[in-house]
């Protein structure tokens, strides 16, 4: 067990060192949700009327509504960033070093996932701290209660990134992931507007939003911030985590090869 722990620590240290060396990545990850919060939200507030829906007890501002969705956005983008860095690792060969270590492959991939989730969670907290400075404040306990929600959601989105990275064989194909994964997942969710608004727009769209795992990750975060557990969201997010992990393990099965041409 000790060797498992040593490997986990080493992988977290490596990812953190690499992350610290990429300050622009940290800034980009923060600027994106802040632009939504401080610029788009101002415009959307006028266009969108929000009714009182759980977990909110009263009318809230639009900025307050989208904070959990923007935390989810950070986790989503970071999950895909992890995926991108895995494809990069594979192109650069450092993935081979990882996968030829004498430890179960599932554990090595899980360590990668934990490392990226910790970084995502740290980013989400930085965003919440900045939002606090802009007077979007929550109960202090909410900031603590949201930690497991951020971790589970981060793991789920990271696992999705891992599964995608096993299929994307070249770095150049990554733009497709942006178009076909990140944007639909983000916009077809409850991150920017409540689902009842989506129901007004159309049944099919509503249905897609309802099964979108990202919707449930956002709702899990939203309820946790208000000290409530949304069991349906927790179940759906955990189930998605299991499915994406299984896909990732299948994708990194040595019988399928890990590099271009299977070499």
């Amino acid at each position: 067990m000790r060797t498992f722990g040593i490997a986990l620590l080493a992988i977290i240290t490596r990812e953190t060192l690499r992350y610290v060396g990429q300050r622009e990545r940290f800034l980009a990850a923060l600027v994106r949700p802040l632009v939504w919060l401080l610029v788009f939200a101002a415009g959307f507030r006028a266009a969108l009327g929000l009714s009182i829906i759980p977990p909110y007890q009263t009318y809230i501002t639009y900025e307050t509504y989208i904070v959990p969705g923007l935390c989810g956005m950070i986790l989503l983008f970071n999950g895909m960033q992890t995926s991108l860095s895995l494809v990069y690792d594979r192109e650069m060969g450092s993935m081979k070093v990882l996968l030829t270590a004498p430890l179960p492959r599932g554990w090595l991939l899980f360590c990668k996932l934990v490392a990226s989730t910790l970084i995502s969670t740290l980013q989400a907290y930085t965003f919440l701290a900045i939002a606090w400075l802009f007077e979007i404040r929550l109960d202090l306990w909410g900031y603590i209660a949201v930690f497991p929600a951020l971790c589970i959601s981060g793991l789920m989105l990271g696992a999705l990134g891992l599964a995608i990275s096993s299929q994307v064989k070249q770095l150049e194909n990554f733009a497709g992931v942006m178009n076909f994964v990140i944007f639909p997942m983000f916009f077809l969710s409850s991150a920017l507007y409540p689902l009842w608004k989506m129901a007004e727009a159309g049944e099919v769209l509503f249905w897609i939003c309802t099964i979108n795992p990202f919707t449930h990750a956002v709702e899990l975060i939203r309820f946790a911030l208000y000290l409530e557990i949304n069991l349906a969201a927790l179940g759906w997010t955990s189930l998605s985590l299991g499915v994406f992990l299984a896909l990732a393990l299948y994708g990194y099965d040595p019988a399928r090869g890990i590099t271009r041409d299977g070499k």
């Binding site: 490596r14 060192l17 450092s94």
Partner: peptide
């Protein structure tokens, strides 16, 4: 030793070796 370089370019030599040592259970 793989054909292409598999070191982390932005980490030091020692950091690279520590990472590898840990993957083999040495810390």
């Amino acid at each position: 030793v793989f054909q292409q370089t598999t070191l982390d370019l932005d980490l030091s030599v020692r950091q690279n070796l520590r990472y590898f040592a840990a993957l083999h259970g040495f810390a």
